[in-house]
């Protein structure tokens, strides 16, 4: 007996961001990010998307492609994604200039290489943008769900739980769909030795970018002003804290 195997194609969009423990500083008169000594990682929310994709592909019913818009320096991050379990990778050879630029590169790739499911992280931890998910969907005329907490796929149907203020909402839609994943969708996976070895030989295709007009630009940075020294209150004198919060900080 032969069973027709339908392979679901999953595209995971990853960005290359400073490690979460990084001290953030700037150069060139506060107009450029100081990447000196910074370790780069897969954006933590994209790691969740990747883990979910790899989980869905277990059993061989799906293939996972990761896509990154970045220059050659992002390849170690891409190889890590392959080590976690993606089958192949695509790098659009351009520095990511803004969300609009990145989303257009991804959408253009998908137009030429259709997929059933596009996963992004809910946001990137560098510029804290949440735009790519919905711009990609809009450019491809697809449904999307940003800030997903749970995702299940059954045949051609996705059921997604998304966060709303003070609660949650459960929605369903048929594939293809673009989903921005948050904590809860999957546990990030740590690559094992076999994964790391096999990642070296998995395909990493480099594609040249399309021309896209950038819509916004960052003209400068500021570091937050440090707070004054802490006022310590004796553990036996909580009334004093209540008094300070009321009369000095004026927050209660």
């Amino acid at each position: 007996m032969f069973k027709t195997l339908i392979i679901m194609k999953i595209l995971v969009c990853i960005s290359n961001v400073p490690d979460t423990t990084s001290k953030i500083t700037f150069t060139d008169n506060n107009t450029a990010f100081n990447s000196n000594g910074i370790q780069y990682i897969i954006n933590p929310y994209d790691e969740i998307a990747l883990a979910k994709a790899v989980e869905l592909a277990e059993g061989g019913n799906a293939s996972v492609t990761v896509i990154n818009v970045g220059d050659q320096s992002t390849e170690p991050t891409i190889r890590k994604a392959l080590a976690v379990g993606a089958d192949e990778a695509v790098r659009i050879n351009a520095a990511p200039r803004d969300a609009w630029f990145v989303a257009n590169q991804i959408a253009n790739y998908v137009k030429e290489n259709p997929v059933d499911l596009i996963l992004t992280g809910r946001e990137s931890i560098d510029y804290n943008g949440t735009q790519v998910t919905a711009i990609v969907a809009e450019l491809l005329n697809l449904p999307s769900v940003s800030i997903a907490k749970k995702l299940t796929i059954n045949n051609n149907e996705a059921t997604i739980e998304r966060e709303i203020e003070g609660g949650k909402e459960v929605v369903s839609t048929s594939l293809p769909v673009v989903v921005g994943t948050a904590e809860g969708v999957a546990e990030p996976k740590i690559p094992n030795m076999r994964g790391i070895m096999s990642a070296r030989t998995k395909p990493l295709n480099v594609i040249e970018p399309i021309d896209v007009t950038v819509l916004s630009k960052i003209t400068g940075y500021e570091s937050p002003t440090p707070r004054g020294a802490v006022t310590l209150v004796d553990a036996g004198n909580v009334d004093e804290l209540v008094n300070l919060l009321h009369s000095k900080a004026k927050v209660i």
């Binding site: 804290n128 711009i135 969907a137 809009e138 916004s216």
Partner: peptide, 23 residues
Amino acid sequence: NSFSGKGLAPRIATKLNAALADG
């Protein structure tokens, strides 16, 4: 820039060829 706004603002901006400042 609420949970729903994050999914909505990029769509509006794309349709209007507008730059979006989120957050």
